[in-house]
Design a protein around this nucleic acid. Structure first.
Lengths: 225, 225
DNA sequence: CGCATAGTTGAACTCTCTCAACAGCCGTGG
DNA sequence: CCACGGCTGTTGAGAGAGTTCAACTATGCG
């Protein structure tokens, strides 16, 4: 496969992790800043623009009427959203921290894509990678227990960040809503993992994975806690 | 958007629901039959071919080492699998009933796609639709209770089949493994739904949705059972 | 320093699971 | 045509993982 015109592959190939070649081509991204907690897009609304994260973190989530929330994934620098073949946003997006993003009008994005048909193939591959990721999360939510979920999550963060020392941009509640658990369960798991020597917790937003092998065994369901 | 060269949109737009224009273009699909229970592809194996279902049903699933199984989705006539930007199968596929499929060698599929760059865009849109579907299932598995899960599932089948009289190709165990429940819970739910007048169950593989409105309320979490 | 927010811990509860027995259906063969 | 066996689904009782509710502690910001 030829190098993407739209995205440079930087290890984590994903619809939400393209790079700035896009900005070069469209040449009309507008930089925007938003404060922590700000809702950027709302599930179900028409998609009028596409965003690329420069700095900060966001959460993408769907809700049930009574407020129950499922976080689909977290976004960080270089991730995109609104870049989809659908007409409406499939989920809401909210800033976890203060964020800086580049905003592109959707019609321009579409124009670039129409201009360069090969881009479609690249986007297809990126969407497939994202789909694959979602399918792995289906297994987690449908069939893994609480220990396995947290272990899986921590390992995936470590892989993303390329470091055993993991930074947690999100709150315990966010983690719970991503893993289909409650905040209390997540909190108890962190404590237990610490007591088992699997991790250390220097502070709220930091986790050091102390025993990757046991965490991996646990994530795959072959280590009883 | 121009009509897809590769797929005709027949209502349910999805990577797994393309149509026979593909056969016309590649002109080299081989018809194959497989008996009920037959494993067609195995999770993790390289993708050497792509299949289109002619008749019968299949299940796509991922597993944890100890045998726990999560069914990602079910396939029926006109659905495809193996059509992805990835190198390896993300899930195993098994025949629920006897099936007839058309098999295409992957390099030919890729050749067709390379030949017609616009196809990439269509595939992208289809993958996005599939992703959207997976994300809705994440909400179901992460945040819905057992009643809501079954109601949601039955309604989606009715929509797919365009009929309140739903045919269940799959077993109770398959439904359980799709909804992240056990077979006993699914069985109890069917009985309770029947007693509540929500459905009638003429036989094992048939469900008639008797009260769509209440089922919809239940699926969205606004009806206590 | 003090308040508000985020996280932790405990105890009781509940939904779903597990284990076990039973019932219904279907194909096979007498 | 019925008897049989195997498989699928149903029902019951008890157990358990995770939730809920509540109190308490730590952290960060004015």
């Amino acid at each position: 496969m030829a190098t993407s015109l739209l995205f440079r592959d930087e290890g984590r190939v994903s619809l939400t992790r393209p790079c700035d070649r896009f900005a070069e081509r469209t040449g009309l991204g507008v930089t925007v800043s938003m404060p922590m907690g700000r809702m950027v897009v709302i599930e179900g609304e028409p998609i009028n623009e596409c965003f690329r994260v420069v700095s900060g973190s966001l959460r993408c989530y769907k809700t049930v009427i009574d407020g129950r929330r499922q976080i689909i994934n977290f976004l960080g620098p270089n991730d995109c959203f609104g870049l989809t073949g659908l007409a409406n946003h499939a989920f809401s997006v909210e800033a976890i921290t203060d964020v800086v993003m580049i905003r592109y009008p959707r019609h321009r994005v579409d124009a670039v894509i129409d201009d360069e048909p090969e881009l479609g193939q690249d986007l297809f591959r990126l969407a497939c990678a994202e789909l694959h990721q979602a399918q792995r999360h289906l297994l987690l939510l449908g069939r893994k227990n609480a220990d396995e979920r947290l272990a899986t999550f921590l390992l995936s963060l470590a892989e993303q960040q390329g470091d055993h020392h993991v930074h947690l941009a999100m709150s315990r509640q966010d983690i719970a809503d991503h893993l289909g658990l409650t905040i209390e369960t997540v909190s108890r798991l962190f404590t237990r993992f610490r007591n088992m020597g699997l991790v250390s917790l220097p502070h709220r937003h930091s986790v050091i994975l102390a025993d990757i092998e046991r965490l991996e065994a646990m994530a795959e369901g072959s280590l009883a806690a």
